[in-house]
């Protein structure tokens, strides 16, 4: 693809802290290379703000290679922008052309309060995992790799669910700000494996309870989460979560 430079208008949410009222600020950036990532474009903008003596924009990022889930930006009405199965750090400026205006907002959810600018507090996800996203194993030497037989299809399904990077795009995309896709991936990948069996019932009950306590909404199966998930986590996991929930409730344990 031909390399080109572009000038852009950015409307970015600025908010001093969790308590303050935020507002949009409009910025112009010049000579952005089509080969830059979206975050590199933000780096350019921040350099510009610093040289103007203004406060740079706070945004989450870490790996910048699409595997950590830190980069959270709601770009023109879509979490992580317009590319499917892509995090913000992997969105590249060749998507845009000279003169475009881009609106960038933080994830919006009661359970994800804004910390500053585009950075939100996603520790609710950590607490959901703490509530049950673990297994009990004996310490000591590592077991022989193949001593537990696991059917290939189950292993594959579990692995696909475990690909969730906890980015929160599912919550950001959902009209109910529900974290069901995240929660279901975390429940399903353990429910499919023998290692997850001992805590199987209590896990789903406790994690659903924590999900609700954190202030996420109830899933109404709109499937926006699946469409926006950078790791293509399937709503079949939500199906499994619901079945696990019904199983746990009717088993009478916990």
């Amino acid at each position: 693809m031909e390399h080109y430079n572009m000038n852009l208008t950015l409307k970015v949410w600025r908010q001093q802290n969790a308590q303050s009222q935020g507002q949009f600020e409009t910025y112009q950036v010049k000579d952005i290379s089509s080969e830059m990532s979206f975050l590199e474009m933000f780096d350019v903008l921040n350099e510009q703000l610093i040289s103007e003596g203004k406060e740079p924009i706070t945004f989450d990022h870490d790996c910048r290679e699409g595997i950590c889930g830190a980069c959270s930006m709601f770009i023109d009405g879509q979490p992580h922008g317009p590319w499917s199965e892509t995090t913000t750090c992997q969105l590249h400026m060749r998507q845009y052309k000279n003169g475009d205006t881009i609106v960038v907002e933080p994830w919006r959810a009661k359970a994800f309060p804004v910390i500053k600018d585009l950075m939100v507090d996603r520790s609710a996800f950590d607490r959901i995992i703490q509530a049950g996203g673990y297994i009990s194993v004996n310490t000591g030497n590592a077991q022989d790799a193949n001593c537990l037989p696991i059917a290939k299809d189950k292993a594959d399904e579990s692995f696909a669910a475990a690909a969730c990077i906890g980015c929160g795009a599912c919550v950001a995309a959902c009209k109910n700000a529900s974290a069901m896709l995240f929660l279901s991936a975390k429940v399903a990948h353990l429910a499919l494996l023998p290692q997850g069996e001992p805590e199987r019932r209590s896990r789903v009950m406790n994690m659903v309870e924590q999900h609700d306590k954190e202030g996420f909404g109830a899933c109404t199966n709109t499937m926006a989460c699946e469409a926006e998930c950078p790791k293509a986590i399937s709503i079949l996991n939500i199906r499994r979560l619901n079945a696990e929930y019904i199983g746990a409730v009717s088993s009478g344990r916990d």
């Binding site: 709601f74 023109d76 009405g77 609106v103 919006r108 009661k110 009209k175 700000a177 996420f216 109830a218």
Partner: peptide
């Protein structure tokens, strides 16, 4: 469910 996103998106 309406209360779960107190500040709405612009776009």
């Amino acid at each position: 469910n309406k209360t779960k996103r107190p500040v709405d998106y612009n776009v």
